[in-house]
């Protein structure tokens, strides 16, 4: 479902051009569990951002569900993200003034889902991440692990086929991190494609497939 062909991504840093992705060819099938590993600066975040449609490759072809997405305009990209991709970030990115339930609701608001349906789906999502008691709590009233579970519930609320996680446990203690990984792996068992960046070997090796990047190349 994710097919990258000859993907290059170069950045201009001052007068130097940095080759962040160098001829990436990668296919990820539906329901796969892939971890992207590599030292910092190896281009793993850039690769995730390209897959996430947050960044456009300098050259190459990216097709998602057999649709070439490298040519889409900004609004179309937003729509593809909304419908196909869920995000889990290292720094959570919850909106501080909204409650857990409201944070989960946001992608549905953007997608124009009617309010009754939103309420029902938020309730289900809170149940799935075991936070039904925390629905009205704001992020500052939740622990790190709980915040990341809210973020996962938000990522999955539009039932995307792809879940992208950028160091999802990077800011958590090992116990909450373990819970988060189990939650993500559970989602993967329900046929969600899971792509996760990590530099934790133990974590990375749990995936079916490990992609190692060094200097923008898959090794």
């Amino acid at each position: 479902m994710i097919e990258l062909e000859n993907i290059h991504r170069t950045f201009q840093v001052g007068e130097q051009s940095v080759h962040a992705l160098n001829n990436i060819n990668l296919t990820i099938n539906k329901g796969e569990y892939v971890s992207i590993m590599g030292p910092s600066g190896s281009g793993k975040s850039t690769l995730l951002n390209v897959i996430a449609l947050l960044d456009q490759p300098s050259s190459g072809i990216y097709s998602l569900n057999n649709q070439i997405v490298t040519q889409l305009d900004d609004n179309q990209l937003a729509q593809v993200r909304r419908e196909n991709i869920g995000f889990v970030f290292q720094f959570f990115h919850l909106i501080a003034r909204y409650s857990a339930a409201e944070n989960i609701e946001i992608p549905m608001i953007l997608a124009g889902v009617p309010i009754q349906e939103r309420k029902q789906r938020v309730a289900d999502a809170l149940l799935a991440v075991d936070l039904q008691q925390r629905a009205t709590h704001r992020p500052d009233q939740l622990s790190g692990g709980q915040i990341q579970r809210v973020a996962i519930a938000r990522a999955m609320i539009m039932q995307p086929q792809i879940l992208l996680a950028d160091e999802p446990t990077g800011n958590l203690d090992s116990k909450s991190g373990e819970g988060i990984i189990e939650l993500l792996e559970n989602l993967n068992q329900k046929q969600t494609t899971l792509v996760m960046i990590t530099h934790d070997e133990a974590l990375g090796s749990r995936a079916q497939r490990i992609i190692r990047l060094i200097d923008g190349k898959i090794v």
């Binding site: 996430a52 947050l54 900004d74 609004n75 937003a78 729509q79 993200r81 909304r82 419908e83 995000f87 990115h93 909106i95 946001i106 992608p107 953007l110 997608a111 938000r154 539009m158």
Partner: peptide, 16 residues
């Protein structure tokens, strides 16, 4: 700004 980034990532168009 980071909230705007999040909204864009989860599918908000510029117009929204």
């Amino acid at each position: 700004i980071s909230e705007i980034g999040l909204l864009r990532a989860v599918g908000a168009e510029r117009g929204m």
